[in-house]
Every structure is written in structure tokens, then in C-alpha cells.
């Protein structure tokens, strides 16, 4: 058996295959024709909440106390644009990387489901991009970029790909669930969160099942040094994902000067650090801890 073939072992697990088949059926039953389904309003009221106030990056800090209600609502608009921009970026990477692995012999033959996964993410990327352009006039960039080339075994690369996807989707899901059920929100923005989460719940189920299946294969195929590097890679991904929620341009667009200094202060704020741990990172970090991978919400 060559090292490439080990990943394909996951398709020999009947329980796993049965779960993936069930998810494929659900995707087919619940398929949405998103491109024609969304009725875009001409504009969204800037006096409405675009994100619940408790989800704003200033929540729990002195900025929240100092800002007027109007300022906070304006900030909720730009924080929403940032959140949706992060979805565009994340889904662009996801679609690109998943597509490049379709029908490759060294990875599990999960194409039946992955075609739905990619199809749904492609639609999400479209409506998030469309939303940002229509109502924000732009898509923010998180500046997320790989600086050094990292090499892993094929099994570890596959595991890390789905691990990053999982972290990204679970953070997004936290915001989706809270915003979709909040009646103070603008109804159209709520609808976008609802549509997104309906598909994402399946993607998260798939990702968790796949990660549980591939973790041992990935770690067994790697040296101790590679395993440590892989965990450090995921820890950096968590940190970059958290920091991306504090986009200085959204503060500037809300009329607050010195966006970088504000970002730095918020990232070091004790209330915010506690919140990272206890809100949007709680479920994904617990999941990884159950796999034996211990990541922290606030590494520095």
C-alpha cells in the first residue's frame, strides 16, 4: 500500500459512508435555486441593526459605552460587510481547494457529496459578494496570506484543509444562528443568515465526521515535528480568523479614526478575549480537543 492510499480507507467505514450518503440526499431534497430566489431590496436602512449589538466587536468594551446608538448601528453595517467579506474569501479558498482534489486517486471518493458542498458554497460566495457590493460598495480583504511554504504528508494536508474549513464554518455558524433568530435585525439581512446556515449545518456535520475519520491517518503518517507544525498551523489559523473580525477599515468606515490602534486595543481587551473563548470558538475548540488537538482562543 503506498502512502497515498491510506486516506481512501475512510470510504471503507460503513457508518461514515452512510452519513455522507444521508447528507447527499438532504442536499438534493433541500436544493435551493438561490440565484433566482433572493429579492434584493434597493437599500437597507442604516438605522436598522445589520448585526445584533452583542455580536459587534466593541461589545463589552469602553467603545460600546462611548458610542451612540446611531454609531453602533452604523458600525453594525460595516461589521456585517466585513463578516460577509470573510465569507467570500473563505468560500473562494474552499471552492478552489476542494475542486482541485475532485477525482484525484489519492483522496477518498466522496465526490457525490463534495459536488453539493462546492455547489452550495459557490452560491454562498455569490450572494455574500453581491450583498457586499450592493450595500457596502466593496469587499474587505483580511490580508490573510501564507508567508512560508509548508509541506506535510498528503494525509495531513487533507486533514488540515478540512480542519481549516471546519474552524471557518463553525465561527460563521455562530454568527448566522444568533443573527438569523434576532428580531431586532433588518429582515433581509436575517434572511441571508438563514439561507446560509441551512446549508452550513450539513457542511459542519460532514466536516466533523471526516475529521474524526482522518485525524489518526494524518497523525500516523507524520513525524513528531510535522505533527507539532500542523498543530501550530491550526493555532495560527484560529488566531488569524479571530483577528480578521477586527478589520480597521470597518471602524474607519463607521467614522472612527485610528482603526489599527482600536483593533489592537480590542484584541487585548480582557472582555473580548473571554468572549472569543466562550462564544464563537467554544464549539470548534471543544471538538478539536476531543480529537486530541488542543488549541487556544487567545494564544498571546
Amino acid at each position: 500500500m503506498n502512502s497515498f492510499s491510506k486516506l481512501t480507507l475512510v470510504t471503507e467505514n460503513d457508518d461514515f459512508v452512510s452519513r455522507v450518503n444521508k447528507l447527499t440526499s438532504l442536499s438534493r431534497e433541500r436544493v435551493r435555486h438561490t440565484f433566482g430566489e433572493i429579492s434584493w431590496p434597493d437599500k437597507i436602512d442604516t438605522e436598522a441593526w445589520w448585526l445584533p449589538p452583542e455580536l459587534l466587536s466593541v461589545h463589552g468594551t469602553r467603545y460600546e459605552q462611548e458610542m451612540s446608538l446611531e454609531q453602533k448601528k452604523l458600525l453594525s453595517k460595516w461589521e456585517c460587510i466585513n463578516l460577509f467579506s470573510l465569507n467570500v474569501e473563505g468560500e473562494r479558498e474552499l471552492v478552489s481547494r476542494l475542486s482541485s482534489r475532485l477525482y484525484q486517486p489519492e483522496v477518498p471518493g466522496l465526490e457525490n457529496y463534495l459536488h453539493h458542498f462546492i455547489d452550495e458554497e459557490n452560491k454562498h460566495m455569490w450572494f455574500f459578494g453581491e450583498f457586499c457590493r450592493r450595500y457596502g460598495g466593496k469587499i474587505y480583504s483580511s490580508k490573510k496570506m501564507a508567508i512560508a511554504e509548508e509541506t506535510y504528508s498528503p494525509e495531513m494536508e487533507y486533514f488540515l484543509l478540512f480542519a481549516r474549513i471546519g474552524i471557518f464554518e463553525e465561527i460563521g455558524a455562530y454568527f448566522n444562528v444568533a443573527a438569523a433568530s434576532d428580531e431586532r435585525m433588518d429582515p433581509f439581512v436575517r434572511q441571508i443568515h438563514q439561507i446560509h446556515h441551512a446549508d452550513e449545518a450539513r457542511h459542519i456535520t460532514f466536516g466533523r465526521a471526516l475529521l474524526a475519520q482522518t485525524k489518526e491517518l494524518a497523525f500516523a503518517s507524520s513525524s513528531a515535528e510535522q505533527r507539532d507544525r500542523a498543530i501550530a498551523h491550526l493555532q495560527r489559523y484560529v488566531q488569524i480568523s479571530v483577528e480578521a473580525l477586527y478589520q480597521p477599515a470597518m471602524y474607519r468606515d463607521s467614522g472612527i479614526s485610528s482603526g489599527v490602534a482600536m483593533r489592537r486595543e480590542l484584541l487585548n481587551d480582557g472582555a473580548r478575549r473571554k468572549l472569543h473563548e466562550e462564544s464563537f470558538l467554544k464549539r470548534p475548540l471543544r471538538f478539536f480537543a476531543d480529537l486530541g488537538i488542543h488549541l487556544t482562543a487567545n494564544p498571546q
Partner: peptide, 19 residues
């Protein structure tokens, strides 16, 4: 590194006044 690269670019953005 990949983490402080983000802040590095954000500072340059603030210095030049555009994204």
C-alpha cells in the same frame, strides 16, 4: 510571519489612507 503580516499591511494602509 503570517500573523503579524496582517497588521503590517494594515499599518501601511493607514499610512497611505487607502485599502
Amino acid at each position: 510571519d503570517s500573523i503579524n503580516f496582517v497588521e503590517y499591511i494594515l499599518i501601511i494602509e493607514e499610512l497611505i489612507g487607502r485599502e
